[in-house]
Every structure is written in C-alpha cells, then in structure tokens.
Write a protein that binds this DNA or RNA. Structure first.
Lengths: 219, 219
DNA sequence: TGTACATCAGTGAACGCGCGTTCACTGATGTAC
DNA sequence: TGTACATCAGTGAACGCGCGTTCACTGATGTAC
C-alpha cells in the first residue's frame, strides 16, 4: 500500500540507498499501521514495531531518527491517501448530471463510510495532534485540500445553495460533518453502546442537517 | 470549588477520617485541575501534583489507591459541575416567554462559551475516554443527563419543531453541536490558526444550522 | 570475470531516564479513664 | 483536667518497570581495477 502513496516522505527518513533498506522502511511503516489498527497507538513501541516488521531496534534507528519521525511519516502517508481518495470521489465528471441534493446525500454517505474505515488511524493521530504541531499542520493542510475540492465541485451550483454566504456555509458544514463523525468514532471506540446510532439513520439525519443548513431545496 | 460539588466521590478515595486529610484530598484535586489548565494532562505526574498541592507522595497514596483514581475523581467532579451548570441555565422558568428560535440561539451561545471555558479539562478527559471505560461511562451519563434537560425544556414546544421526528432531531442536533465545539477546542489547542473562526460568526452559523435542521421557523 | 575494499544495512545487549508505587518511619489527632 | 495509647495522616528515599535510544559489532551489497 505504501507504493501507491507516491515518493517516500524523505523529511523524516534517513535516505535508503539500497533496495533492501527501502523494503525494511516500508515493513516498519506497515507494521506500525497494523498495530494501530489492531491495538491502538499506545501499543506502538519500538520493540513491538520491529518485532512485527521482522526487523531490529538498530535497523529502526538506521531508517528513522526517532519514534516521532515514524508516526509523522505514517501520518503523511495517511493524509496523502485521504486526499487521493477524495480526489477520485469528487471528480466533477462523476457528478455532472446529479442534482445538488443527491450530491450532498452521496457525499455524506461517503464520509460516513470513510470515517468508519479509517477509524483506528484517525483516533491514533488525533491523540498526536494535541501534542505535536507537525501533526496539526498536516491535518490542517489535508482539511484545506479537501475543502478546496468540495468547493470546486460546488462552484457552478452556487444558485442551489440558498444560504446567504455559501462559501462560509460549505466550510462550516464540512466542519460539523467531520466533527460529528470524529466524535462518533471516539465514542464507539470507548465501548459505551448507549450512544450507538445506526449507519443509515445517521446518514439520513446528517444529510437532512446539511441540506437544511446549506439551503438546498429538494430536486 | 470542590465544596460546591457536593459530597466527595468515595468510590475512588480512601475515606478521610480527619478534617486535615479531607483538606489534603481537595488540595490534591485542585492542584491537578490547575496543572491540567496550565500545562495539560501530560504534565500531571504524582511528583508534580504533590508538589503543587504542598503534599507528599506517601500522603497521596494515603488518599488515592492509584493515579487513575485521582483523574476519575476529578472527572466525576467536573461532570457534576457541568450538569449543575446546565440545570441552572435550562431552568424552564427562565425561558417561559422566550420564542423557540431565540431559545435555540441562546443555547448555542451558552454552549460556545461553556466549551471555551472548560477547554483544557475537556481535552484532558477526552484523552482518557479512549483508554478507560470508566471515563467513557461518566461521559455518557453526563451527556444523557444534559439531553434529558434539553428535552424537558422543549417538551411543550414540540409544535415548533417541524422535523418529522423531533426527539431524534434534538439528540442529533446536540451531538453535532457538541462535536463541532469539541473539534474546535482540539484544533485551537493545536495552535494552527488557519482554522480559527470568530466566536460570533460561529454562534451565528451554528444557530442557523440547528434552527434549519430542527425546522424552527422565525418568530 | 574475479577479487579487494568501501559503504550500507542489520543486530541485539545495554543504558539511562522518568514514571508510578512501596515502605519503614515520624508526627498529629482524638479518646478512654 | 490530665495523661496514655490507639489510630490516622504525612514524609521522602528507594524500587522496579518499560520505554526510547545508543553503540560496538557482524553481515550484505555494490564497485573499481
């Protein structure tokens, strides 16, 4: 999966010169992601990672200057993947003949599924965002990139949004949507099911909220 | 401030028998809260806490069985304070003659200010919620208590909510509102100002969103 | 094509640090007679 | 009221654990002649 994400983010990595070490690096990244998905960030320790990657502690420090660099590198990879996914999903060609109301509904559904799939990774990095400005920065840049694509898609549909300030409304709607889904992820992970809500019901209600707020009238 | 929160939550505390030790306990709690507000949860270590509370390590373990108990106890206190605050703010008598639209606006404003004031504490406990089910539980109970009061306040205004399922809508609206404010807290704490938004603008947009979603028509 | 040598990559025991926690002890408080 | 004794509260040095990181070393790879 790393190979799909383009060139390695060399900022956090000692440049690998042999193919062998490039493989090691990707094994380390993949092992880290696997540990996060299975047991959460707190289980990510150097001993655990190198064992899962069939590597060694020294080898790890041959690739990464320190532990933070590992997580930064993985975060970069994840952010790039998110933007790439959105890029495909929001390709204007795919939506040319779809009414705005349906477009919003589809987007909400897509977001719900995406947040579900990425839950463990998002939770992991959320924890880091509070502590390390590097993570906050990447997150902000990623959000901005996604916002750009959403606005581009809605550019020639301004007339369908009856909110007095469509740009601000789109940004706010995106925030409320992502915030609600993030909160849901966090609550779900905590294992208290008093707060559970059905996927379909959630999609229905969030769509309704977004449509009502943006001022999109039924087709 | 501890004295306002009612009886001490004895579940996490070795019962104090002398007045002296009761004072120590409250000093420990207050010191912990102060450290969280000033430097975040990560700065909460036993040495730091006992120094700030002018106590000692042994004295700490005379009151609390372990470190988690300290944070649980503080969380309980914070949750009780939140519910008490909401209880006063949502007293039906205060709102009897206010139109529903204005009520919603006022509530949004109140929520924005509350989240602002409690930002450090909320961030601190959010971190714990993922790891310890005790925190998730208290959070869920608190949210339920607040939901109850909101629904009570809106009980005889059902006719003003044109959403087809008013109860579900109120719950969902509460979630989106708290989620957005939580996310804002997290982003603000991360120190990336590309995401800043004015308090008044936020109140305006969130009010608009809630009113449109709930289906409240202008007075 | 073969060989020598420099560089790169990998190994895992060992270190040091900071944390939560324990423990043997001293001092303060309350109470029974 | 005074005193002796039991209990409660407080002290801080010391311990152990788990982590991130270092380091002296071995093995693999590529390249110059």
């Amino acid at each position: 999966m790393a190979s799909e994400a383009g060139p390695l983010p060399l900022r956090w990595v000692h440049a690998p010169r042999q193919d062998r070490s490039k493989k090691t690096l990707e094994r380390l990244l993949d092992a880290t992601e696997a540990i996060i998905r299975e047991r959460g960030v707190d289980a990510v320790t150097i001993p655990e990672v190198v064992q899962a990657a069939k590597s060694s502690v020294g080898s790890f420090y041959g690739r990464f200057p320190n532990k933070t660099a590992l997580l930064s590198c993985l975060h970069e990879r994840a952010c790039e993947q998110s933007v790439a996914t959105i890029d495909i999903a929001l390709d204007p060609d795919r939506w040319r003949d779809v009414p705005t109301a349906d477009l919003v509904r589809s987007f909400v559904r897509f977001a719900v599924l995406l947040f579900h799939e990425r839950q463990p990774m998002m939770l992991a990095f959320n924890a880091a965002i509070g502590a390390d400005p590097g993570f906050a920065d990447r997150r902000a840049r990623t959000a901005a990139a996604i916002g750009l694509r959403v606005r581009a898609l809605l550019a020639d549909r301004r007339g369908d949004l009856h909110h007095p300030r469509p740009d601000r409304a789109v940004e706010m709607a995106l925030r409320a949507l992502t915030a609600t889904l993030e909160q849901r992820n966090a609550l779900e992970a905590s294992g208290v099911d008093a707060v559970k809500i059905d996927d379909e019901a959630l999609i229905e209600e969030l769509s309704r909220m977004m449509l009502a707020y943006l001022g999109v009238r039924p087709a």
